[in-house]
Each structure stands twice: as C-alpha cells, then as structure tokens.
Design a protein around this nucleic acid. Structure first.
Lengths: 219, 219
DNA sequence: CACTTAACGCACTAACTAGTTACTTCTTTA
DNA sequence: TAAAGAAGTAACTAGTTAGTGCGTTAAGTG
C-alpha cells in the first residue's frame, strides 16, 4: 500500500520532513476537493486527512473543527475569485469590452474552478452561516459590485448603455447564466438531451451569454 | 412527547387505522422536506420516519432504500413542475405574452416550491445518477422544450422575435435567472448587502427577468 | 368465524464518524 | 547539547446511522 520500504533495516526509515505551512496547504486543498465533491455533510474528515497525506489529528490542530475547516476553504475560494476579478483591470477598457470580458471571465472561472460552485451551493444549503462570520468577504464583494457599477455609469455617459440598470441585478444575472448552466450540467444534459459539456456546447453557451448581457444593457 | 394517553387503561388503546397509501404519501412529503433541507447525504432516515409519523421500517417496506426514496421524491418533483407548465396553455397566447407568462410562472413556482431547487442541487451533486434511471422525466422534458420551441417559431414568423434563437439556450436562461437568485439567496444577501427575499426585491427581480428575456428574443 | 395477507412496531446490529488522548519524533535555540 | 516546543502518529471513544429480524395487529376474504 505505502511506498515505505519495509524490508530495509530500521536505520533507513524516511526522515519525515516537518513543514507546518505545507501540511496546512495540503489539508486545505484536499478539503476543498472533498467538500466540493460531497458537500459539508457528505464530506468525511478521514478522507480529507488521507487525501492530504496528513494525520487526522493535524486537521483538528490547525483548523479546530470540520466546520471551521469548511469556513476557511470557503473564504479562500471567495478571496480567490474576487482577487482574479480585480486583476482584470476592467476600468482600463471601453464599457462594452469591459462587460464582455467580465462575462467571459466569470464563465471561464467557473469552468476552471468547478469546486467554487459546489462550495457555494453547500454554503447556501446551510443558509450562509459560515459566510456571515467572514468580514474579509464583505469588503471584497463591495469593491466588486462598485466595479460593475462604474462600468455601467461610464457606458451610460457615453450613450452606449441605457441608463438605470441596477448593478446588483446585472451582477446576479451575469453569474446566473453561467452558474446555472454548469451547476446543473448533469440533470441539464438529461432534460435537454444534449451533452452540455461538449466543447462546442461550452463555446456556444459563452457566446449566447455575452449576447444576452449585451442586449440587456445596450441602448 | 406523544399525544398517546398513557394513563388510560390498556383497553382504551387507539385503534391505529391502517392506510398504506396515506402512509406512503406522508413518508414522501416528509422525505421531500428533509432531503431539501439537508441534501441526500445530510438527510436522516429516522428524522423522515418521525416527521411522517410512521415507523422507519415502513420506509424500507415501501421504498426499499434511502436512495430509492430520494429517487421517487425527485421524480415526483419533476413531474409536478412539468405538469404545471403544461397547464399554462401557452400555445393559446401571443408569443410575447406566452414567454412573459413562462418567465413569471417559473419564478413563482421556484418561490412556492423551494424544495424543488434544493432537490435538483442535491441531484447534481450526485451527477444525476438517480434521474438517469427515470424514463418518465425524459418524455415530459421533451414536451416542454418543444413547447418553448413552438413559441419562438410563432414569434419569428410574426416578426416579433428575431429568428434563430436556440430553444434550449433560452430555456436554460429562463430557469437560470430565477434559479440562481433563489438558490443563492443566502450568500447573495451577504455579498450584495441587500435582503434579496424582501417583497420589493422579489417583485423587482421578476420584472428584471421578464425584461431580460424580452430583450433577448425580440427583433 | 377462521384464515390469510399486509400494515405496523420494537429492538437490534454492524459499520461508520467527528473528535480526543496520550504518545513519539523532529527542530530550534538558550 | 540539553531542553522546550512544535509537528506528527496510532489507537481509541462515544455517539450516529442505514438497514433488519421478527413478532404483533388490523383488515379483507371464503
């Protein structure tokens, strides 16, 4: 089972390097996958420990409880997407290009980080009780909503966007048209008798989504 | 705890009426709530039995296993929404009115049946393995997609809708803009610092959604 | 009324699960 | 280099959990 060479004499035992940060990181990565795959309730602490190649005791040493581990994983996930969004530098782009880029980014982020969606689903099943406690998330989110609000204002001033579009409704819609498609890709592929995850289907959906948002905001 | 009158002599025991159908129905109702609240993994069979005012043994007698009970609950939920959609008689309405009515119906169905959303989420977490086995769902879904396809065709023929809109993409989008808002209402209310479930917020979202779909399909 | 069938209930089990106890081993620093 | 502290481990516990064996009781039938 293990790669340990049990046949060698005991003097040849592997030195077992110690690295708190690395172990913590391995636990977080394993936890993200396990929570995403099975939800908070379905995830097993023993499985996380095994996947992380760490002892279960370490999880409780670093993260106190299963719930707090989940909270950390969730916070990290939100911080990651909000950070990536800030890096897009949408303020430097023309309003239409900025919005199109945001729609594309959102779509591709969900595609590349399927755990994000499942973690958010799990958190909503628990009525966001972990997110409520997190202050970092709130400030990061505020910045994000303002960013989209600025794009809308610039566009309206230039006359390319119609005025009065609510940035919150728009944000929700941009997320929705990508998120729903992907989170329900399994039931969706059955209901619509179409492989929603085929390369062409994915490209087509992105085009459709950009088009939807443009039609929604353009004058 | 129980309403049983333990102080009366044993001859006064309640007659315990037998009704297989009623018991089955109670179990299904309780199971729907419990699965919706906690997901398939988080749901507890003992809790379902208690809520249904039935003995746990009956669950296994009628439904064989927890998974098959979940599958039955899920099938019933899909059949319910598809049946309700057929009752809308959208073919009798003008294309624009028909589409607006469908958007409104979808929104209100999700609002009135919050279990539906959570059940679908749970099923997707399990990669739709229960839905795959269900044949009834597939035929019901086909009818639904065709219905929307017909509306689009009628609208395009009349010149009120632009031609070439994919009915599947449209269907997904109609569901998405309502579903996402509601399934993520807990995290959403934190991220956007707004009570997404306030009466005005809900009305506003419906208007926004109808508007979004109209702009998407109109010529 | 006897008899069969099916509804119902109790009490159990085998496996699992979050969290802990008590210990060993490595690393740093006074 | 000794001592302290931190990293890491194995084995355990107390409580759950899906699923069952088997007996009891109501209701339909000849």
């Amino acid at each position: 089972m293990s790669i340990t060479n049990e046949d060698t004499e005991k003097s040849a035992r592997k030195p077992r390097i110690r690295d708190a940060e690395a172990t913590k990181a391995r636990i977080l990565e394993a936890a993200k996958k396990e929570f995403a795959k099975n939800g908070l309730g379905g995830a097993r602490v023993d499985v996380i420990a095994e996947k992380a190649n760490a002892n279960k005791r370490m999880i409780y040493h670093y993260f106190e409880s299963k719930e707090r581990l989940f909270q950390t994983v969730l916070e990290d996930a939100y911080i990651d997407i909000r950070t990536a969004e800030q890096k897009l530098k949408l303020d430097d782009l023309e309003p239409k290009a900025a919005l199109a880029k945001l729609v594309q980014f959102t779509w591709e982020y969900y595609l590349k980080n399927p755990e994000f969606i499942t973690l958010v689903n799990s958190e909503n099943l628990h009525r966001a009780k972990h997110l409520k406690k997190s202050e970092v998330i709130k400030t990061a989110s505020r910045k994000f909503v303002n960013m989209v609000g600025d794009i809308l204002e610039r566009g309206a001033a230039q006359g390319v966007f119609r005025p009065g579009v609510d940035p919150v409704q728009l944000n929700i819609t941009i997320a929705a048209i990508g998120y729903y498609y992907l989170t329900n890709r399994f039931t969706g592929s059955i209901i619509f008798e179409r492989d929603l995850m085929a390369k062409e289907a994915i490209d087509e959906r992105l085009q459709f989504n950009v088009d939807t948002i443009m039609r929604l905001v353009c004058a």
